[in-house]
Design a protein around this nucleic acid. Structure first.
Lengths: 146, 146
DNA sequence: TAGAATAGTTCTACTGTTGAACTATACCAA
DNA sequence: TTGGTATAGTTCAACAGTAGAACTATTCTA
């Protein structure tokens, strides 16, 4: 890829991802239960998909400092959506786990999200959607492992 | 697309976009000049690509309230990166325009961004990159026009 | 066993965001 | 023509998220 083509590809990527991310974020925000933010729902989702985690792990995954995670976790804890479970071996470590209430809340998101995103996915045939997702996942993997 | 396949596609999209957006945001943040945030650079970039705009237009495009835009604009104004130009016909509207300094700053981003993203783009051949961007742009268009 | 490393919290300061209240201007219909 | 309504933008208060430094409490290690 020559330099000009590279620059053009980057520009198009930035423009498309900007529009998609902004629009989707706004729509998702509207669909979230009162008092739950996008960050908080992403945290709950991660805990459901990946099981118990620690603050340090979340900080790594979310690419933020540990103090940011503490703030988010505290708010979710105050809403009784997650629990803090101390490790029995290493007393520095605290595991974060969904409460049944938190688990239920993530299921609620999912059905709303499916309803929301489903109406846009119909514009893409299986083949196109498959290719897109696969490249996206490949990009994610490259960003993680380099 | 049946329901299960739809749910799976959505899950994979959410996971991939989460990882890509988090990682890229963190990298971009590191590459931004001191005192310039991601939101601010996105605003400058928009003004460069689209010429003079109004607060209302930016609020639409960024999918936020007008008061958010006022806050961002004020900070960029204080850094002498944009100017406020009153419309001569309609005295309610104020156009936002890059200063030469602001223009120069967006050029600086671009070269850093090109350097940063270029090293990941080499993992994708032209055909794959082209198909991906085209689907992404199609998704953006669908989100805007429905 | 002393010093370094790690896990997590607290605190301060800041940006971005919402939403309501507000000012100023323009539009429009009776 | 004017009185009500719509629009553009700002201000304000309250909050979430973030960084980064300082801190506590552990565990590891040379």
């Amino acid at each position: 890829m020559d330099r000009e083509r590279l620059q053009q590809t980057i520009d198009r990527y930035i423009a498309a991802s900007f529009t998609v991310n902004r629009r989707l974020s706004a729509m998702i925000r509207d669909v979230l239960p009162d008092g739950i933010t996008a960050e908080q729902s992403a945290t709950l989702r991660y805990l459901r998909e990946n099981g118990r985690s620690t603050s340090s792990e979340l900080a790594d995954i979310f690419c933020v400092g540990k103090s940011s995670i503490t703030a988010i976790i505290t708010r979710l804890f105050d809403k009784h959506l997650i629990e803090r479970v101390p490790d029995e071996k290493d007393r520095r470590v605290t595991y974060l786990v969904l409460t049944p209430e938190g688990e239920q809340m993530t299921r609620l998101f999912d059905s709303k999200l499916e309803e929301l995103l489903g109406q846009y996915l119909i514009h893409f045939d299986n083949k196109e959607a498959k290719a897109f997702i696969e490249t996206y996942e490949k990009l994610a993997a490259v960003l993680v492992h380099t």
